[in-house]
């Protein structure tokens, strides 16, 4: 498959009266690419997905799927396969009948339906459950049926609406790796809605960060993490210390050696030691909180100006420092990342 654009959102917008749910959004998803729509609830990500599926009519803009304008096409004629947050399995149909539903609607001959359903059942490890009704399945099994039902029709684009939010933490991680593997192997163009930044980082080719109906940044997980475009992206993806630097000092008087303007400093870039703070990019404070996370230790340093500086370091931090004691934070010039002027 060539790296052509499979799905194009061209100035797509949706307004409800005077409120804007999605504001003129431009997004291109390449063939075989998985793009996450990430943002807090109410940011317009689900509205965008439902416009692509054809359940919500756009107020403005166009949707192109494999070069064809589908903006006004009814939902059932669009070639999309959606996995719903609630799974929305048909409760009166068996696992096999649920998966076969879309193939039957497309008039696929019976022997081929049986063959394709069997292949999907094997791919998703649902063997032996074909005759069960959805209510006789565990949550994880139901989720896999929902995925199978959407993938078996070979849709031009797969739409995932928070597909992991109803699974417990342990199952969630395994399932998302499994889904990513399937998506890569089958080369499925995928639009994936989530509010969980870790989930988006883990399996996406690119992330579209949305806030209040607007697309704040579009980039690979590393790009949005290391080069956030806005203050919102910096604080929503991972954790961030934010300074406004002017004439070598932050707004609360910390000497900074780095670019001017709004700067982002990631907690894991900060180191702690006992030596006195001298020169720029160093500041002394009091340890407010130390929490051991298993993979490391998170610390909160209270600075004289009142700011709480977030620090992430090795597990040994918990041995070298104690709550209420002094510590000095340091970082390098390159760790200060300037946000584009807002």
């Amino acid at each position: 498959m060539t790296n052509s654009a499979d799905l194009v959102l061209d100035g797509l917008a949706r307004r409800y009266g005077s409120t804007t749910a999605v504001a003129r959004m431009d997004l291109t998803v390449a063939a075989g690419e998985l793009v996450a729509l990430l943002g807090p609830s109410g940011c317009g990500k689900t509205t965008t997905l439902r416009m692509v599926a054809g359940f919500i009519e756009p107020s403005e803009g166009r949707i192109l799927l494999r070069g064809k304008d589908i903006t006004t096409m009814p939902a059932h004629q669009r070639d999309t396969g959606m996995v719903f947050q609630s799974y929305a399995l048909f409760p009166h149909l068996s696992v096999a009948e649920n998966i076969a539903f879309g193939l039957k609607r497309r008039g696929v001959p019976k022997p081929e339906i049986a063959q394709r359903v069997a292949r999907m059942v094997a791919l998703l490890q649902l063997q032996g459950l074909e005759a069960r009704l959805p209510k006789q399945l565990s949550g994880g099994q139901q989720q896999r049926v929902a995925v199978g039902r959407a993938l078996v029709i070979n849709p031009a684009v797969v739409l995932l609406d928070e597909p992991f939010s109803n699974l417990d933490a342990l199952l969630r991680e395994g399932t998302r790796i499994e889904l990513r593997r399937l998506q890569t192997e089958l080369g499925l163009t995928t639009l994936f809605v989530t509010h969980d930044q870790a989930e988006a980082m883990a399996i996406s080719d690119r992330i579209a960060v949305m806030n209040k109906g607007r697309l704040e940044q579009l980039g690979t997980p590393r790009e949005v993490y290391e080069r956030p475009a806005t203050r919102f992206v910096a604080s929503f993806i991972g954790r961030a210390n934010i300074f406004v630097s002017r004439d070598g000092r932050s707004e609360d008087g910390i000497p900074l050696d780095g670019p001017e303007g709004t700067l982002v400093l990631r907690p894991e870039r900060v180191t702690l030691d006992e030596a006195p703070a001298e020169g720029p990019n160093a500041v002394a404070g009091t340890v407010d909180l130390l929490s051991f996370l298993g993979t490391g230790t998170q610390a909160v340093l209270r600075l004289p100006g009142g700011r709480q500086l977030l620090v992430e370091g090795p597990a040994s931090l918990a041995d070298r420092f104690h709550t209420g004691g002094p510590a000095t934070a340091r970082w390098m010039r390159d760790d200060l990342v300037a946000l584009p002027a807002e």
Binding site: G54, P74, G81, A88, F90, H92, G102
Partner: peptide, 24 residues
């Protein structure tokens, strides 16, 4: 959402009603 799921899989609104909503 089951009616939407049926439409997403290629059933017209009328078909979705008779194949999914009514039997349920």
């Amino acid at each position: 959402a089951i009616e939407e799921a049926a439409r997403n899989l290629g059933a017209s609104p009328t078909k979705a009603f008779f194949l999914v909503t009514l039997p349920v």
